[in-house]
Nucleic acid binder design. Sequence first.
DNA 1: AAACAATGTTGGAACGTTCCATCATTGTCT
DNA 2: AGACAATGATGGAACGTTCCAACATTGTTT
Lengths: 340, 340
Amino acid sequence: MTALERKRAATILDVAAAAGVSKSVVSLVLRGTGYVSAAKRTAVEHAVLELGYRPNAAARALGESRSRTVGVVLNDMRNPWFVSAVEGLNSTLNERGLQMLMGDFRLDSRSGESLLKKLLEMNIEALVLVGTMPESPGLTAAALQVPTIALGAPTGPGANVTVVTNDDDAGARLAVAHLIALGHRRIAHVGAPATAVGVARRRGYEAEMRAAGLAEFIRTVPGDLSEEGGHRAALELLSGGDRPTAVFAVNDMAALGVLSAAEECGLAVPADLSVAGYDNTPLARLRRISLTSVDTASFAAGQRAAELLIARLEPGSTMPPDELLVPTLEVRGSTAAPHA
Amino acid sequence: MTALERKRAATILDVAAAAGVSKSVVSLVLRGTGYVSAAKRTAVEHAVLELGYRPNAAARALGESRSRTVGVVLNDMRNPWFVSAVEGLNSTLNERGLQMLMGDFRLDSRSGESLLKKLLEMNIEALVLVGTMPESPGLTAAALQVPTIALGAPTGPGANVTVVTNDDDAGARLAVAHLIALGHRRIAHVGAPATAVGVARRRGYEAEMRAAGLAEFIRTVPGDLSEEGGHRAALELLSGGDRPTAVFAVNDMAALGVLSAAEECGLAVPADLSVAGYDNTPLARLRRISLTSVDTASFAAGQRAAELLIARLEPGSTMPPDELLVPTLEVRGSTAAPHA
DNA sequence: AAACAATGTTGGAACGTTCCATCATTGTCT
DNA sequence: AGACAATGATGGAACGTTCCAACATTGTTT
């Protein structure tokens, strides 16, 4: 059997012929619906095995006029949070017989437009946007055509989108409350003002500080979500007078920058400076880093998004409300009580 | 327009009617093949825009009896190497109008069997296995049905699989040669004997040491690909007498363990100990770590795999030979000359 | 002028399923 | 006995494309 004369794949008619029944019976057996006598059922099952029959998904999609496929658009495959969320999504969708079709928004030359076009051509039944997407006409149009969920983004692009994400406000308060409980008062924040997560986490920081009567110690230095940004901000924070005894960074990468800056300033962590991050990335777990960090149940968020989608696909359902998942705090070696 | 009475999507017949031509002309315009008069072409293009027509991928796949889809099976989405390779794959496949269908082998309850089944039902034209897969009957069967490439795995599952991966032997030699050039002689290796990459990299280490006349200093301590394993191995290495002045670790994670162990033993890096890793993960770039590491052109490997697949899909082509991509060395702050 | 090639255009037949109306058989209730 | 429901099986029509053979028109060569 060379490549040229690779034998044609068996179709449902071949199976029907081999089993001595009509194609309809084969279809009924395969889908498990309707009434089929035991004898014919086993005959069909035999023939299927015999011929190595595999139903053709394209033909099925055409016949059913549905695709059992969910489009998943990532904006950054490298972000561990997204990866983990997608794994959660995948696990739940798979259980329900739904296939995932994934693509990376940024990898697409025409900024995702052609990816969305492809997905819609595939007749996806739902769309999941993982991460914050830039506004784009194609995106808002797509969201109007199929049920859409924004996963891990603080807000969806336009209307008709349900948001499933972590409660960044609550997470930030968790971290700050932990530092306060340790006895810190002078707690600074390295933020990322340009991003939506940055804004939410900063709000949580400020709220918790105020709630603890520490409003006068609120101090935010703008950085970004990178190590570089955290480093720059921390140098500013640590070089001046009135040094904070603890820093809550907007994410783990920025926290790493803070750690580096502390080292350069001759400050020991956690003896001279406590540092807390956000996202509980694999980095935080590393022995050399051991960073206290807010854990954002990303896998669970993915699963939840899948559940919402599945419910949404039931006929007669309506758009579910947004959901905020509650994060937890993973305490590690980078935070301790300040020395008197 | 409520959800209930969402208007039926326009089909090619609707477009043909609106443009006053036959469905065949619409098809020709859309695919850009054959002869169509300018007048009818613009009429069709108008109608397409007017109706928001979008061809149905399932019907097209059925008609063409091909899917323009490549199945991609990952065994670990969290591995940055794989992610980057997939991005390379995606970028090249997209340019050629091929769609990627991704799934995670491990996420599948039945150990990937059902994922492969789904992919084959989708009539994928080729299969890419990213990372080392466990042997499985479904996998070998799939590899016989469609052109298959193992990406980033040292060896494919069974026959009929082309392997595209990095030359681990050469990469290891690169790192070791760098250490030797710095003046190190007592260079130890923290290995991962249980894995295929571990074996290849160890071989490279030993070969380079021997080539430099340093056979007597060859010393390998077994660890694994994790920080934990690297830490354990390094403690053994550094606590005894005859301490090495440099360590080449099997990957970046293990190298991190080595760094931690050095710190615990009171050794400064790179003053007292040089450390080199492998994979050039984002970790290695971090200021606090700044690890010299072998860079494994993963994006390029993905692109190359895509090129091979595209060539393989041409009728009359044969299975291409395996390919090894040459890595490069990224020198950072963790390696320096030993002090006299 | 006839033959032929290049350019345009068409409708019908695939492609491989599911869906549906129909029919046949059997058993159960009035 | 007749009516009806449950069970079992069937073939034809859809689904929305592409593919193909056939036909029309025009221009070019013999």
